[in-house]
Design a protein around this nucleic acid. Structure first.
Length: 496
RNA sequence: GAGCUCGUAGCUCAGCUGGUAGAGCAGCGGCCUUUUAAGCCGUUGGUCGUGGGUUCAAAUCCCACCGGGCUCACCA
């Protein structure tokens, strides 16, 4: 079962290249020879002295506003742009090229023999090359914007031919290839890039949201000798100098609460979490969470804050609170529904047996019958104490705790509670975890003595919350799999 | 971990009631001064995932293995 990390180093060999007979190798060899040939003729195939003056998005490309080519004014503005060559239609003494640049913006180049230098360069280009062009814009006879290319430069030679759809070709359908060679996926499917842009927007907007509220962003340790803060199996690693085994964190919770004890009343961390568990559409072994903690607040305050946050993110990223996820209409407009776990289960099973009305039985019934049905955003509150080793006991019902989870499209999106700050209670909960661990529960938390001591010094009443950012981005960008919002999702190691 | 399913040219696929491989796109050579999935002529390229087996003969049937996908289980 154990598989070592792949450390093979491919050896480049001209002889091997020249002896290869496959079509792909033949194309690579042909393009490699092209590079040498261009160098011999004094053309640098990897030139970096071309100055771009405009992003393609900044170039006027509305044909209504552009003159026909023969009427380009002598002093018309010139634009220097660059991008990847995606299509080339040669028509004898004239050629049309399509470039795609940053942001997926396209521009059409018109290269004609009247500009012999540019024309000669065009003859050397191949699909996939990165090129720079300078010229004036006009409208073609069929009413499309194009740049009369007066200067054309090869900026980077593509040695390996691009696979799949560029413009009008076939899509790459091999899902493995798309994730393993994400750059190909992005070249072939510009909408993939848009998802990553939206992911970035989600996170930056989130930062802004918390910064505005005087939260302090921190980065806590990822390598830990005690593991806690969530129920999950950890990854193990080893520190050579200390000669000690360490865990990769499964949550940021305990360190953030230590910081609250230390006096940062509002703190958050956005960062990677690692859980050594199964993978599917909603789970990647490493994923990104935000956890935030606010002193002198309760989980109820966080419900209001969460509503505000999600509504704002939806507008910032999707442009509206009324989004669609995999064909289901979802409204992220405030307020969200709130219901206790027991009420939620009773709604569907009024005759619920007594043993299922509390403790693990209740959670089981909830997960089996209710969770998948919670399509619209719903806060579920009042969790049994057994599944919440770090949350504050409810003052009226000591079997329950002051906690909520937010569910959307049948999946947990956020988890929050009023934090347990009674050190004696916390020690008892850790002990219960230790018992589970001894009984073989690999997901049980370690007894964290230092954390208990921190609480003994006194943590103000605090509420904290964690949100899975990957799932949130899936929701906001309507992506069916977590792999679609992570640039390099976990796959099996390549090869045997 | 279990079930289902798939693995043929760089990409997308056809061929699979067994007779040693095809198309479109891409590539290469040629023609074309306003095209836009341009067109036309010519052309390269595959030990059909790997290894066994059945057979005169296997991409095609059988078995095993490797890899992918989906579903379930596990998992917040």
């Amino acid at each position: 079962m154990a598989r070592s990390i792949n450390s093979s180093v491919p050896i480049f060999s001209w002889e091997k290249m020249d002896n290869e007979t496959s079509d792909l190798e033949g194309q690579i060899r042909q393009r490699t020879h092209k590079v040498a040939e261009l160098r011999e003729r004094g053309m640098n195939p990897y030139a970096n002295d071309f100055r771009v003056t405009h992003a393609i998005a900044e170039v006027p490309r509305d044909p209504q506003q552009l003159p026909p080519e023969p009427e380009i004014a002598a002093d018309a503005p010139r634009y220097a742009v660059a991008g990847r060559l995606l299509q080339m239609n040669e028509k004898g003494k004239v050629a049309f090229l399509f470039l795609r640049g940053d942001g997926g913006e396209m521009i059409q180049l018109f290269v004609k023999i009247d500009y012999p230098d540019a024309f000669a360069v065009m003859k050397e280009l191949q699909l996939g090359d990165i090129v720079g062009a300078r010229g004036a814009m006009f409208a073609t006879r069929i009413g499309k914007a194009a740049m009369r290319t007066e200067q054309l430069r090869l900026l980077t030679k593509a040695i390996r031919p691009l696979a799949g759809k560029l413009l009008g070709g076939q899509e790459i359908k091999d899902i493995e290839a798309r994730y393993r060679h994400r750059y190909l996926d992005m070249i072939s499917h510009p909408e993939v890039v848009e998802v990553f842009r939206k992911r970035a927007r989600t996170i930056s907007e989130m930062r802004r949201f918390f910064d505005e509220r005087r939260y302090v962003e921190v980065e806590t340790r990822m390598l830990l000798s005690t593991n806690g803060g969530a129920t999950a199996r950890p990854f193990r690693t080893h520190h050579n100098t200390l000669d000690v085994d360490l865990y990769l964190r499964i949550a940021t919770e305990l360190d953030l609460k230590r910081l609250v004890v230390g006096g940062i009343d509002r703190v958050y961390e956005i960062g990677r979490i690692f859980r050594n568990e199964g993978m599917d559409r909603f789970h990647n072994p490493e994923f990104t969470s935000i956890e935030f903690y606010q002193a002198y607040a309760t989980y109820e305050d966080l419900m209001a804050l969460t509503e505000e946050l999600l509504e704002r993110l939806a507008i910032a990223v999707a442009g509206t609170t009324e989004i669609s996820f995999q064909g289901q209409a979802i409204s992220l407009r405030r307020p969200f529904r709130r219901i206790s776990m027991l009420e939620a289960v009773l709604e569907r099973q009024p005759d619920l047996p007594e043993v299922q009305r509390s403790g693990l039985g209740l959670v089981e019934a909830f997960e089996a019958h209710v969770e998948p049905q919670l399509i619209q955003p719903t806060f579920v509150t009042h969790f049994p104490i057994e599944v919440s080793p770090l949350s504050r006991r409810n003052d009226r019902d000591p079997k329950m705790c002051d906690r909520f989870e937010l569910f959307v499209v049948g999946k947990e999106l956020a988890n929050a509670f009023s934090e347990l700050n009674d050190p004696l209670d916390q020690r008892g909960r850790f002990q219960a975890q230790a018992v589970l661990k001894q009984a073989g529960d690999a997901e049980a938390m370690d007894y964290d003595e230092d954390f208990c001591q921190a609480l003994e010094y006194g943590m103000p009443p605090t509420a904290g919350e964690g949100i899975g950012i990957d799932r949130l981005v899936m929701l906001l960008t309507d992506q069916p799999s977590i792999r679609d919002v992570i640039p390099f999702p976990q796959l099996r190691p390549e090869g045997g």
